[in-house]
């Protein structure tokens, strides 16, 4: 058989890679939603959501009537010692997502169920995609529930219905939160393919998260300083350095998510980069942007989050397809 013939034959694959996908999704979701792990996380997020929203409501009551977007304030207001809800979400979302994914593949391997499952008439694709989709649906379900809960608390506590602008912004923010979780979910799943021990995979995922949360900003600033040094003290030099630093920090999903949160939840934010005074000519400062303008502002961020999720999934997919399933 010539190489060409072989390639021709290999391209033709019998049946669909989606065979069995929904069976995997259903089983995995049922596992997620009934696991003790998930209960603990739900309790944790319920406590933080309840706590921060309650605190935010106390503050809003003091200044009611002065703000058009009080439901957005429920997410952003904080009072020492408690950070705001978006502050909490910044690290709770990765935590939940990693918890859902870190033992996806190596767990099957260690329980000796992997070879038995793959001996069924399905492709490996179905198993990995099914596990990812089940995790993503679980995240979507949990966050949607939290969002509705916050709306409910707001209705009871504030006695004001949210306006359509607020609902729209919070729905976009929900979407961004789910995909922010998606990145960490797929990262954890990728590590679960690479490492045989679930604990190692979890640690690797948490280490990555910690790296982006704590060290990446420092590193980005160092890199910017050395790559675009300020030699003569010109404005252009300072600007170039600051822009490089900003571009570098945006590699981190944490930065992307934080900027999305700022743009969506503070309608008055008009730019996420640098604005020079002459660019603000004619602008009425302090006036809110309409929703579609804010969405335009975060569009690159959102697509960036989704693209990173897809890229990481592709990587996990390739690694999993090539893996030998025997010990």
């Amino acid at each position: 058989m010539s190489a060409l013939e072989r390639a021709e034959i290999q391209r033709l694959r019998e049946g669909s890679p989606w065979t069995g996908l929904w069976a995997v999704v259903a089983k995995e979701m049922a596992d997620h939603l009934t696991s003790a792990r998930m209960r603990i996380l739900e309790l944790l997020i319920l406590l933080t959501a309840g706590g921060t929203v309650y605190v935010a409501m106390q503050q809003i009551r003091a200044s009611i009537g002065s703000d058009r977007f009080i439901y957005l304030k429920l997410f952003t207001l904080s009072q020492d010692p408690l950070p705001s809800l978006i502050g909490f979400l910044g690290f709770l979302v990765p935590l939940i997502a990693i918890a859902l994914g870190f033992d996806a593949v190596n767990g099957e391997f260690n329980r000796k169920t992997l070879s038995r499952i793959l001996a069924q008439p399905i492709y490996r694709d179905a198993l990995l995609s099914g596990k990812f989709l089940a995790g993503l649906f679980t995240l979507a379900l949990v966050f949607s529930a939290i969002w509705l809960l916050i709306f409910g608390m707001g209705l009871i506590g504030l006695g004001v219905a949210p306006n359509s602008e607020e609902v729209g912004r919070l729905l976009w923010f929900l979407l961004a939160t789910i995909f922010y979780g998606g990145i960490w979910l797929v990262l954890a799943q990728m590590f679960s393919v690479v490492f045989r021990q679930p604990a190692t995979a979890a640690l690797a995922a948490i280490a990555t998260w910690l790296f982006f949360t704590v060290f990446w900003n420092i590193l980005a600033s160092l890199l910017a300083q050395s790559l675009r040094p300020i030699q003569y003290g010109f404005l252009q030099e300072a600007l170039a350095q600051a822009e490089l630093e900003l571009a570098l920090t945006r590699i981190s999903p944490n930065t992307l998510y934080a900027e999305i949160a700022i743009a969506l939840l503070n309608p008055t934010v008009r730019s996420l980069g640098f604005v020079l005074p002459f660019q603000l000519e004619g602008a009425i400062l302090g006036t809110p942007l309409p929703l579609h303008q804010s969405v335009l502002l975060i569009w690159p961020h959102l697509t960036g989050l989704i693209a990173a999720t897809i890229l990481l999934f592709a990587l996990a997919y390739v690694l999993f397809q090539r893996q030998e399933i025997r010990a």
């Binding site: 290999q10 019998e14 049946g15 065979t19 399905i122 492709y123």
Partner: peptide, 10 residues
């Protein structure tokens, strides 16, 4: 080439 058929019968 036909893993699904084989795995359905084995």
């Amino acid at each position: 080439r036909q893993p699904l058929t084989v795995k359905a019968h084995v």
